[in-house]
């Protein structure tokens, strides 16, 4: 009995050693040389296209020997494309980022992901990384409400989701689609959990304009196309505010959906070394600060500071995301939502 235990302990120790070696994946000169030989890396992401290209530009400047190709689409679109490609045995994607954390559960189940822990991620709080090292939260955003300040006075602005059912908002609302956007899906799940389908049923009778991406809705109220945004990326609102667009963020009083957006490497990545170099790069304090400053996202990196003027996370009532709880309900959410709001 003792022997067995001893053997087991040894095995565990050996396994831990292997795992920690596998986890010690700094960008070494050897890795970089191999990555440069691969010459290229393909990054699928759902972050705003200009933010994505800013990150790509920084990557090119840092690693001129590795060409980076950005494929930007909504999270659900990214998910569909990867799955469609993998179903047809097309291995295109190296590194992926999506705002629907449940995608990573699915890919993990399919055994499509490779474990990799960038050095910076070791210092992340435990809830923002996979215990087995398959993914970590690259960025987070809030799915906020917002309004156009030229069209609506601050005193008249809605303060939460329930306010939107007031007839005076009829025909003035714009919303993104959970069938396209991971942020919207995560947000829809949180709203349903907090307020029930009954709420969305009533909201769907308010003449809501249906857009696809949560990056699109802030642009819509910034242009004045619609007055109030039901959901949209906080980071796009920051970008609009920095660009002096007449918009203001509303953190709904019922709570604001908090959306983590992990990043991972695919096991069958066509450029495995370049993929690791990119993944490490994405989590460095410099890039995390870059996407916070220019991209308006929230970072889990302990060294990153929010720029002045943004409400600290601690002061906002959050509706945390729950990928495990959401995963079995996704198809149902999309179907019921589409039945109410259309495609």
């Amino acid at each position: 009995m003792n022997r067995t235990l001893e053997a087991l302990c040894c095995a565990v120790a050996a396994l831990t050693a292997i795992v920690s070696i596998a986890n010690a994946q700094e960008t070494t000169p050897a890795m970089l040389a191999a990555a440069t030989k691969e010459g290229k890396v393909t990054w699928y992401t759902s972050v705003d296209v200009k933010v994505a290209e800013a990150v790509a530009k920084a990557f090119r400047a840092e690693y001129p020997g590795i060409d980076i190709e950005v494929e930007r689409a909504g999270s659900e679109r990214v998910f569909q494309r990867i799955n469609q490609e993998y179903q047809s045995a097309i291995h295109n994607v190296d590194v992926v980022n999506s705002s629907d954390a449940s995608h990573f559960l699915y890919w993990r189940q399919q055994k499509w992901l490779a474990p990799h822990t960038p050095p910076d991620v070791r210092r992340f709080p435990a809830q923002y990384k996979d215990p087995e090292g398959y993914y970590a939260t690259w960025r987070a955003t809030l799915s906020v409400m917002g309004y156009n300040t030229k069209l609506i006075d601050a005193k008249d602005a809605p303060t939460g989701y329930m306010d939107l059912l007031d007839p005076k908002w009829k025909g003035k609302l714009v919303k993104s689609h959970p069938g396209y956007s991971g942020t919207s899906l995560t947000g829809t799940y949180a709203i349903v959990k907090a307020l029930g389908w009954d709420y969305l049923d009533k909201l769907s009778k308010q003449g809501v304009q249906q857009l696809q991406s949560t990056t699109a809705t802030p642009k819509s109220i910034a242009s004045g196309e619609r007055a109030v945004m039901v959901d949209g990326n906080e980071y796009n609102m920051f970008i609009e505010i920095d660009a002096k667009s007449p918009v203001k963020i509303i953190y709904p009083k019922e709570g604001t959906p908090f959306v983590t957006s992990p990043s991972a490497i695919f096991a069958e990545a066509p450029h495995p070394n370049a993929a690791r170099v990119l993944e490490n790069f994405l989590f460095t304090a410099r890039i995390q600060q870059l996407i916070v400053n220019e991209g308006g996202t929230r970072s889990m990196h302990p060294d990153v500071k929010d720029p002045p003027g943004r409400t600290p996370l601690a002061e906002i009532k959050l509706l945390p995301d729950d990928a495990n709880g959401m995963l079995p309900q996704i198809a149902d959410i999309k179907k019921r939502y589409t039945a109410l709001f259309g495609n």
Binding site: V49, E71, A73, T215, K219
Partner: peptide, 23 residues
């Protein structure tokens, strides 16, 4: 199309889903 085989027309269609009208 797939990510590697995008054309200009579908690229524009992707940009439309995020309201990037300038590009």
């Amino acid at each position: 199309f797939t990510a590697r085989t995008k054309t200009v027309s579908v690229t524009m269609f992707d940009l439309r889903e995020s309201n990037d009208w300038g590009p």
